[in-house]
Amino acid sequence: MLEIKDLKAEIEGKIILNGINLVVKPGEVHAVMGPNGAGKSTLSAVLAGRADYTVTGGEVSFNGKDLLEMSPEDRAREGVFLAFQYPVEIPGVSTTNFLKTAINEKRKYLGLEPMEATAFLKFMREKMELMEMDKALTSRSLNEGFSGGEKKRNEVFQMAMLEPKLTIMDETDSGLDIDALRLVSAGVNKLKDGERSFVVITHYQRLLDYIVPDFVHVLYKGRIVKSGDASLAKELEAKGYDWIKAEVEQGANT
């Protein structure tokens, strides 16, 4: 599904990703952890196609296609979805209109007819129930005046609507209350079908109790410095990052 080879990226001359290697196969869930400023959001942004970053090296292929060559909209329509760490407020664009546009643009790209208005509304209602989204939220402007938790839930709601092949969640669990965390996880688990894959960026083991990862990676100074199974997350929760940082420094010195 996703193959990242020696990916390097910088912003304003500052190197942020310094040789990332990661392979995500269909149906897999990968957790990416790591201290603040390690480059996790940068990795997700580069994968989604944010123009602020300059890719200085490496390759990313998505289902055999060169992801880095594609515009952000094409990546999305090919099936990549990024749940933002900080979703943007867009006054004047209703969530409903936004999602209808997004879904129909994707269908157009795939050579499908646009979704009928009634079918769309029915589909949306289903997903709203799944995410326990209040009707008032979707009729309002996109994320405008939403609470932090509501914004995150709206991201997962959008994911449920767009049914991506690969979802990258950037700290979707931060700022969620216990019930919302359960809902968000349910949203993800519902979408799991053995084909769809997930890259879950998080700081907390908590989320991984609900969305059990196949692999856990630690990103530090723009590199994946350690990988393991779900137990690695538990170890990090207990011990923090110092031992990993020490390992890295030691590795650098030898």
Binding site: F81, L82, F98, A102
Partner: peptide, 23 residues
């Protein structure tokens, strides 16, 4: 930021621009 957000959902640049301008 808004442009990128819309495009990251599969909305092409020209459509995204129009959505934002209309709003």
């Amino acid at each position: 930021e808004s442009m990128f957000y819309l495009r990251s959902r599969g909305i092409p640049e020209d459509v995204a621009r129009k959505l934002l301008l209309t709003a």
